[in-house]
Design a protein around this nucleic acid. Sequence first.
DNA 1: GCGGTGAGCTTGTCTATACAAGCGAGTGCG
DNA 2: CGCACTCGCTTGTATAGACAAGCTCACCGC
Lengths: 240, 240
Amino acid sequence: MTASQSDSSPPAYQQVKDHILDRVLKGDWPEGARVPSENELTRTLGFSRMTVNRALRELTAEGWLTRTQGAGTFVAESRPQSAVLDIRNIADEIRERGHEYSSEIYQLRAETAGSVEAGLLGLEEGTEIFHSLIVHYENGQPVQLEDRFVNPAAAPDYLSQNFRSITPYEYLMKAAPLSEAEHVIQAIQPEPETARLLSINPQAPCLLLKRRTWSGGKSVTYARLVHPGDRFQLWGRFSS
Amino acid sequence: MTASQSDSSPPAYQQVKDHILDRVLKGDWPEGARVPSENELTRTLGFSRMTVNRALRELTAEGWLTRTQGAGTFVAESRPQSAVLDIRNIADEIRERGHEYSSEIYQLRAETAGSVEAGLLGLEEGTEIFHSLIVHYENGQPVQLEDRFVNPAAAPDYLSQNFRSITPYEYLMKAAPLSEAEHVIQAIQPEPETARLLSINPQAPCLLLKRRTWSGGKSVTYARLVHPGDRFQLWGRFSS
DNA sequence: GCGGTGAGCTTGTCTATACAAGCGAGTGCG
DNA sequence: CGCACTCGCTTGTATAGACAAGCTCACCGC
């Protein structure tokens, strides 16, 4: 049981963490499943119990596991919670939850900017602007309507992307790395058309997230993201 | 060096954490100041080095300290607070807009914690917990219902505050400086009682902001903030 | 059948010891 | 003077052993 690590492998507790987290993310151990006990992991992995304990303790602090003295260690219940208020990719989030992601593209074209969109993106009215309308699905259920305007100067190839394999978010982050962002969050009653696209009751409250982003002082995109209130929540945590 | 803790005092590593954090919060050790070394604390406090190490490691993870191998442990420089959805005082916001702020206190008392509140604050079910219910008005119109639970250990004088002249937010920030916060944002249809207190139609969508905060690893408060959808929006901007 | 009880598991903590790795000051050599 | 090296301090990690505290379940007595 002597593991004198003079090599350059990551520390033992980190290896244990990686090992456990791997299984959790892969879904080998579903939510609520029991994680092997410390003694079992000690035997299996060949590290001391204190090392295993540290790994499990840290994973618990990070929200992946729950532990109760006397009973055991378990995979934490799904954080239905979604995006921190930092900007993330909805496709990644859905896949991270182990769910199936899909999308439907309703519109993807160039338009002439109206005064509202032009103002929001800091462009002249009447200039060309890209516009996309996409619905994102989690396990076949719509979770987000993404109505997005893009500044052609910042992302000239926007229209020629294949948004079945890459989300607008992914492409834009690559084309124009984020340097600044603005969010406005509201609760709204959806427009009839929006309600239809999200397959929800027009009475149902929705979360509207309006987001503008800039890259190096140049405006990139303005997006209206509408989420069904009962199927979505925003989540954020930070330390100061 | 035998410290067999059969009493009910908090665990040794927690005592060490409290001791250090106390000095940091009190300002005995200003930002950047050197914290005594593990060996020194081991001698001073009478706990083993591993216990001291755990305390320092956790305080570092929580952002209070910085450590560099070979050099020492130092009080962390205070980081500017995350601009995204940063926590602000609704009274200040309203006054900044040049509007008149007022509030109505519907409840302010000690209760025994139910399982939900206890769980959210990390307390035992059945322990005492403070509960306040306040409606905030902008120019006489309700803009926020604040339903708040407070950990008495973090803010023992909560109930004796005069919340006509100081908001719960202001008092809590003074009593237990913010070190961590969690937000969950949802769109909901208000409960009838909520709708009544906010003078809105029960059909109207509302923005629900659930916020939990911690100070030095100790939970401080859990608040449910309900805003009428048509009279309120959250706003955040940040650079990266 | 039912209730209490204890054995055996679990996690939670603490200690003493050990070695590795990194920083910095001082020393000595060229 | 300048450079390299070493020594003493720091943090970082790992281990074995110990005990405390809490949950579960099988067993026993009624």
